[in-house]
């Protein structure tokens, strides 16, 4: 790349993008999860469920754009290789998000089409979650690369592993969504959300186990990173904490820890899984081909964007926090939408 300046900004940017993507996964994760659960919920409660995310979904999806454009800005080579390689999962995700996003506006205003948009909301949320999981799985598997470009076909992404990660992310988002609904609802609907949470939690634990076994078996470098001495000791807290959090989530489904416990335990499970994947791939951003540093943009580009980002991100976090605070508290099912 364009020889570095005095300061290597790649670690700072890696941290910012990692946090941004993680925030996206948590925030849009719970509202995509709520969208999936919406389709399974009792009819009378659906309006309440949708209202619980109506004021915040748009802000949550904005983190997806940030993830995309920040990747383009800071690791353009990774963007230029990965995105065409997952052409169809990205297409699926974008179209699913269309149906899901406008359902908020269309559902209540078009009674004769409301069934269509209700279904669109649920199916769209599910497909978007699946597509994102498939993208993640494809990245872990790696791509065929020649001369700085993706050299495979548009269907290389479709493997049993990427389908597994797709389903896993659906379950994970479902768990987050159930956690959100436990916070926002009461009574019978809350009890229903806990039951859904239990199903998702079982699925999530199975999926975490499957990916944790599958990845090191498929790739000896990953196996060495996790299992060789002394890494196995340093990294042991990650699987151990995962087990503790899974147990805490399970207990919270019986009411332990109050209404927020499930949501926070689910966020913890996401954080640990995310760290696990990051440790397996480090320092690659296009696995097996390019490291973070090799894929980085010029120092000038990184610096120009960093100046503004360091000012803007805290402001964004402040007003986002404020809006969640404005809309805090339980939803009431007895006063429904018309």
């Amino acid at each position: 790349m364009m020889g570095g300046g005095l300061l290597d900004l790649v670690p700072i940017w890696t941290a910012i993008i990692a946090i941004g993507v993680f925030l996206y996964v948590l925030l849009d994760g719970f509202d995509l999860g709520v969208g999936m659960l919406y389709g399974l919920a009792p009819k009378d409660d659906r309006a309440t469920i949708m209202n619980s995310i109506a004021p915040v979904w748009d802000g949550n999806e904005t983190w997806l754009i940030l993830g995309g454009v920040a990747l383009l800005a800071v690791f353009p080579l990774a963007f230029a290789i990965i995105i065409p390689a997952v052409y169809f999962p990205i297409l699926l995700m974008l179209l699913a998000l269309v149906f899901r996003g406008v359902a908020f506006e269309f559902r209540f205003r078009q009674p004769w089409l409301s069934r269509f948009w209700s279904r669109g909301f649920c199916v769209g949320s599910g497909l978007a979650a699946f597509a994102q999981g498939a993208v993640l799985g494809s990245i872990i598997q790696g791509f065929t690369v020649q001369n700085r470009v993706f050299a495979g076909t548009s269907w290389d992404w479709l493997t049993p592993f990427s389908v597994t990660t797709g389903v896993a992310l659906m379950l994970g988002y479902g768990l987050l969504g159930a956690g959100w609904l436990v916070i926002k609802t009461e009574g019978a609907l809350q009890a229903w959300a806990r039951r859904m949470g239990r199903v998702c939690l079982i699925g999530v634990v199975v999926a975490i186990l499957a990916v944790s076994v599958w990845t090191p078996l498929a790739d000896t470098a990953v196996a060495r990173r996790w299992l060789a001495m002394p890494n196995i000791i340093y990294l042991a807290p990650i699987p151990l904490l995962t087990a503790v959090l899974a147990y805490a989530a399970w207990r919270s489904l019986d009411g332990w820890g109050g209404d927020s416990a499930l949501f926070f335990a689910a966020m913890g499970l996401f954080l640990l899984s995310y760290l696990g994947i990051a440790i397996s791939l480090w320092p690659m951003i296009v696995p097996y081909h390019y490291t973070l540093w090799q894929a980085a943009s010029s120092a000038g580009t990184q610096a120009f964007l960093l100046v503004g980002t360091l000012v803007l991100l805290p402001i964004i976090l402040m007003y986002t926090g404020w809006s969640y605070w404005v809309f805090r508290g339980k939803m009431r099912g007895d006063i429904g939408y018309h």
Binding site: T62, I65, L66, V69, A70, L72, A73, P76, F79, A80, S297, S298, G300, T301, F304, L305, G308, T309, L312, L313, I316
Partner: peptide, 15 residues
């Protein structure tokens, strides 16, 4: 072109 135009896209998102 990313080195040149992508910060504009990122600033659009952030601002």
């Amino acid at each position: 072109a990313a080195n040149v135009i992508s910060p504009m896209l990122a600033y659009e998102d952030l601002m």
